[in-house]
Every structure is written in C-alpha cells, then in structure tokens.
Design a binder for these strands. Structure first.
Lengths: 318, 318
DNA sequence: TCGCTTAATTGAAACGTTTCGCTTTTTAAT
DNA sequence: ATTAAAAAGCGAAACGTTTCAATTAAGCGA
C-alpha cells in the first residue's frame, strides 16, 4: 500500500510538500499541487487514517451507539444525525452490542452519542469520566459529564391522556414498557398526572418490555382475569399492537369494546386495523438537534436546543 | 488524556513493560501485570486506537456501507454480520452516504462490505484496486478484485412464478424495481424464464424504483389505462403494497379481481390486508455468511459458502 | 548587480503505540 | 561460591502523517 513517501519520491519533492499539496495548503502553487495529486491518484495513494488521527489528535468522526438496528424507531434518528454531521464534514459511524464496547475502549471517535439500554449506568458513569463528549439519549444521569437529551415524553403523553379522558373513557389502564427506562418513566408520569388532574384513578398497571410479544402476553392474562379496562394506554406502539392482536383474536372489537393507544407512531401504526392512535416524534429533526449539540460540544461553543415535542396522531383505536 | 507513558511513570517501569502487561504477554508475571492494569484503570488510561492501528497496520474492524438505515431489509443483515464478526472479536462499523466516502478514503477498516446502490460502478472499480478486501452485495462486477455475494433472486422468483401459474393465472405482468440493479435483473429473469418454460407471454412490464410511492403511481396509471392484468408479480414488497393500496382505493378486490405478489417478506407483508404473498430471505443467516467470507478474506483462508436461498411465503394476495 | 521581500520548498520532531533484541536480575544446579 | 539457564525488564526503532521553523529560490526595484 502506497504511502506519502512513495508519492514524494515519484514527484521528486519532499514529504512535507506532498502533505501540503494534498491538503490544499495555499503555500503550494496550484500547478505543483495538481501534479502531485495526479501522481497520488495514479499510484492509488490513500492516506492512513491512523497516522493522521495520531498526529492531529482528532478523527472528525462521531460514534453513534444504538441497541440494535431493528425496531422501527432508529432509522429516522440516524438519518437526522447523519444529515447534520456530514453538513459539517464529520463522519458518522454506527455500532451495536459488543462492537460498541470495543469502539468505546479504543477512542476511535471524537464524540459519542449513545442510545443503548444495554449499557449500564455504571459503565456509562465510568466511561464518561474518561471519554468526552458523550450525549445520552435514553436516560438521565446526574453528577456526570454526560449530556442527556430526551424527547418530551411527559408532555406528549399528558396531552394524549387528556384526549382519552375527553373522549369519555374513565377506566383507564397503563401498559408499561421496561420499567426503569427514561422513556417509560416519563410517559407514565405524564399519564398519571393527566389522570390526577381530572381526579381519576389509574384503573390498572401492566408491565411489558416494549416488544409486541410482551403485549400479547399481557392481553392474554388480562382476558383470563376478566378485569378489562375501558382503555389501555400503552408506553409504545409495539406493545399496543400485540395487545390489539390478542384482543381481536378473542373477539373483542376495538375501539367498540375497548380502546388502545400507543406511542412512537411506527409505520405499522397506520396499517393495522383499526389504525392505532399514537404520538409522532419527528426523529429526523430530533437527530439533527442531537448532532448540533454534539458539534457544539466538540467546538466548545454553547448552543441551545429545545426538546423535541410530540404530535398527537389520533386515529381509530380509541 | 492519559497515555502509556503516564502509566509507566506511575508504575515505575518502562513503557514496553506496560504495553506487554496490558496485552497479557506471558513474559510479565501476573502480579506485576495486575498492578499495572490497576494503575491504568485508576488514571483512566485508554489506549489510542490511532497509535495502535498505525503500528499494527490493522484495525480489526470491518466497515459495512449501506444505502440508508431505513427500509425494512437491512437490519437483519446487519445483525447477522455483527454476530459473526464479534464472535471473532472484530468490530463492525456501519455508515451511509457521504460518511462512507470519507471512511473509504481513509482506510479506517481492514475490510469493507458494501450494499449501497448510490456508489457507482466506476467508483467501485477504482476503489477496489486500492482497498481490499471488499465484498459487494448488490451487484456483480467482473474483472475486479471485488468479491460479490448475492442472494438467489433468480431461483426464488422462478419458483414463485411457477406457483402463480399453477394457481391458474395467465395474464401476468411484472413490476420492475430500479432496472439495472442486480436484484431487479435476476428477479425478472427468474420470472421471465418461468413463464417461457410454460409457453406464456409476459402480459406487461411496469417500471418502479422499489418504493411504495412508485407502486402507487404505477397502479394509478394502470387503472386509467384500463389494461389490467390478472396478476402483478412485483420485484419487491413495498411496490406491491403501494399497488394494492391504490387498487383497493379504487374498489378492486384482491385477490378476487387481481392478484399481487411481492419479494423480501418485510414485516408489513403479513399485516397488510390481504396478507401479501412474498419470498422470505433469511438475511440474518445471509449476513453471517457474508461476514464469514470477509473473515476468510482477511485471513487469506479459503472457505466456501453457498448462496442464500429464498423461502416462498404464499399468503392471501393471489 | 545588490539587497530585500516574498514565494516555494524542506528537514526534523512529534503523535502513542508495538515489538525486536538486548541487558539485568533471579533461580537453581553444581 | 560459581555459573548456566530462565525470567523479567528495558531501550530504541518504527509505523505514516502533520506542522513548525528554517532554508533556498525567485522576483523586483533601484
């Protein structure tokens, strides 16, 4: 693999001249620069990222660590982050699982954005002392150098719940996702406060884990117990769909017999029959905000971004 | 940021000793190694990937370049690749769009897996001379050092079309995706050969671009023209769904009035009403095969993997 | 032609590791 | 005690860039 030395040798000049030429330094006259670039091209020279990063002490790369590539939620977020990052000629790399661990331990990126519930708080705290900047998207963690950015779960769920109450529902249950997660916590809080504000009691609470399958299990037990609420507010769409599927399989009609709502507005939400009422987050926009914040951390400029608001998508499921 | 020198100073030993200790070299006695590791931990030492990569001339990282994070197709593939790669303690990084260009130009990974139709053949040919190994997933390119791996589009579509014919359909049309893509070409070829083999003519050909919206446009024009086939075999699910939506909106019943089939078996395929008949590719398995091949290229061992076969999922749409 | 300013080019240090080959220390056998 | 062998540790070069500071070349006015 050709290196800068080879280019210099062929061009008959010094290494430094080649380096300046390739980096468009104004002290190299254009004609020389062109000649050198041509040679570099011809012999297939690619600069070594390792050497450059070592010398420059940065990589112009941001790492985004996510739980998994599945799930309908991430891709808009990633697109948003990518959009903003590349606009500022930063490179985005994405990783999951154990690859993230490696990447974190090796500081291959200048900054890190984490939305991965599989990384423990403890690990996060530890890593945040050494590696900065880090933005976390899926939780809050005090007394650290982590910057947390979360969507406005509380507000959106509060408004959704108000709408549910306004439609006349009174026996309203909540279906939790993974309990200690930020998303679940704040969605539940919004739900609870909205009920309290209208002097209503929570009819029941069920606990799932954000997956469709957990929704089906909850629905099956619910049917056996014969203690059905009039309405189930779910912490996300996938559980809502799991619940609806089982309910329908047992002959219940939605929304006639029982209402269901979700959160996230995944694609499926508007294909399922009945169409699922949900909350839409503009995750592309949100991704851009996250990236902007990262860039400001990287350049040490302070910028201010607002929490991303949710938009109610009231459809046919309650 | 602490470096290996700092660790050595505190430990009161040489840099090389620290390096050996941290890399579990047997010449350092366990007690010393432990002591050094403790110190490294305490001062938050993280080795510099740049320096290590420079010296070792590898990164133990594989880059996967994809067109976009959206689309329901990629994530299983990525999971499969990741699974296999991490099993061999390689790290996977993923990129799209212009980030890919940067990454390619900087050789941050030991190997590259590309499934990105936005990269031109020309670019690919050029890059393949310099940067190896590269596996491409979405096309074939002769006379290059690229290794191409594609799923068995031809075979699966051939079998699907046979099934369509066996069900009694005769006026059968094909809906293309992006025309020159490998996926489209071979799916169409399978379709065509299956018809020819039964002495049937292609009733019509439409051209979309693999998106749902292109399907809707095709369907709208089709309805206007009043030249409906009995059956539309689509090059992928998303177009099939677009077509079905419009057809239904205009009062056509599927499969009574007209049959439709897809390819890929995306999640939506089994939620849409009627459930879409399609071809399922086990992309997780496929991803593992791709990763295995990459590893073998990296280690220069030759291994042989078989093309991934498709599984017919015949449901209610024809 | 001389000096003076500006343009073009270069040498060498530095970035933080790994690893070869050598030296010093310890252990154990005589 | 002596010495050979084994164990532990160390020094320095090398990886491929970037960039500072210094050198050489060119341009030009008098």
């Amino acid at each position: 693999m050709a290196n800068i030395k080879d280019v210099a040798k062929i061009a008959g000049c010094s290494i430094s001249t080649v380096s300046y030429a390739l980096n468009d330094d104004k002290r190299i006259p254009e004609v020389t620069a062109l000649r050198i670039k041509k040679i570099a091209d011809d012999i297939g020279y690619l600069p070594s990222a390792a050497a450059r990063n070592l010398k420059k002490k940065n990589t112009r790369t941001v790492l985004v660590a996510i739980s998994d590539f599945g799930g309908p939620v991430y891709h808009e977020l990633l697109d948003g982050i990518h959009h903003e990052l590349t606009k500022h000629s930063y490179t985005m790399i994405v990783s999951t699982g154990s690859s993230t661990d490696n990447l974190l331990k090796e500081r291959m990126a200048d900054g890190t954005i984490i939305s991965d519930i599989n990384i423990s708080n403890q690990t996060l705290k530890q890593i945040s002392k050494i590696l900065k900047p880090i933005i976390i998207l899926d939780r809050k963690l005090d007394n650290t150098d982590l910057v947390d950015m979360t969507i406005d779960n509380y507000d959106a769920m509060y408004r959704l719940t108000e709408d549910v109450i306004n439609k006349g529902y009174r026996k309203i249950a909540f279906c939790h996702g993974v309990k200690k997660t930020h998303d679940n916590e704040y969605r539940f809080k919004g739900f609870k406060d909205a009920l309290e504000n209208r002097n209503l009691e929570i009819f029941a609470e069920y606990v799932g884990n954000f997956t469709k399958i957990s929704g089906t299990i909850i629905a099956e037990e619910l049917i056996k117990s014969n203690q059905l609420p009039e309405m189930i507010v779910c912490a996300n769409d996938e559980m809502a769909i799991g619940i609806m599927e089982v309910l329908q399989a047992w002959g219940y009609e939605i929304p006639k017999d029982i209402g269901v709502s979700g959160f996230d507005d995944i694609e499926l939400a508007s294909y399922f029959i009945p169409k699922l009422s949900s909350v839409r987050i503009n995750r592309f926009e949100w991704g851009r905000k996250v990236a902007k914040t990262m860039l400001s951390l990287l350049t040490k400029e302070k910028i201010l971004v607002k929490k991303e608001q949710g938009e109610l998508k009231i459809r046919d499921s309650y």
